[in-house]
Amino acid sequence: MAMSATNQLLPLELIDKCIGSKIWVIMKSEREFTGTLLGFDDYVNMVLEDVTEYENTPEGRKTTKLDKILLNGNNITMLIPGGEGPEN
């Protein structure tokens, strides 16, 4: 049975609820980010703070700490609210 319109949560509304909290971003390539979401726009470009970047290579996982970033939304595949990242 179809949910009523008031109960529906649109994808962008879900991301909007995540502003100010931790989020886990998985890219098309072998790359992931975790950080605090400060904001995003219609393209789902995101501004993240206290970021950890995970680069998965055949030699293992490389992590980089970044202070504050603008992440291009073009290559994002998945967003996980409250995500603690690939290490847990």
Binding site: I19, S29, L38, G39, F40, D41, N45, M46, V47, E49, K68, L70, N75
Partner: peptide
Amino acid sequence: SQERSPTEFLNNVIGRPVLVKLN
């Protein structure tokens, strides 16, 4: 924070040292 949305972030970051990572 003054830098919420991507647009605001970019306006704030002009003139500052940046790191740009390409695919």
